[in-house]
């Protein structure tokens, strides 16, 4: 299953390091990373494959939210189907 992880907030060092460490620890494979500035905010978007993940989806979500709290960024994990559904015919 593919997911989209978005990290939004003020730009700072260590964002990718912190997020990818948590993903690596839980067996999530990063497929692609992109960064962009949306209005005044920094946004990092990751595509990842969670088929090899050892924990339930909800737990990954909680872990990433915790990482988000520690680096003061908003982190979301969403199944990629929502984006495909809304933007592709």
């Amino acid at each position: 299953m593919k997911v989209v992880i978005t990290v939004i907030g003020e730009d700072k060092t260590g964002i990718i390091a912190n997020v990818s460490k948590t993903l690596w620890e839980n067996g999530v494979n990063i497929l692609d990373i992109s960064q962009t500035i949306m209005q005044e905010y920094f946004a990092m978007i990751m595509m990842a494959d969670i088929s090899g993940m050892e924990i339930p989806f909800g737990e990954l979500k909680k872990k990433l939210e915790k990482v988000g709290d520690s680096i003061q960024m908003d982190i979301r994990v969403q199944n990629e189907k929502i984006f495909k559904a809304m933007h592709q015919i």
Binding site: V4, T6, T36, M38, A43, I45, I82
Partner: peptide, 13 residues
Amino acid sequence: MNQYKKIMETIQM
């Protein structure tokens, strides 16, 4: 529109 822009559009919505 590239796929990342679309992702950000959904999140903004």
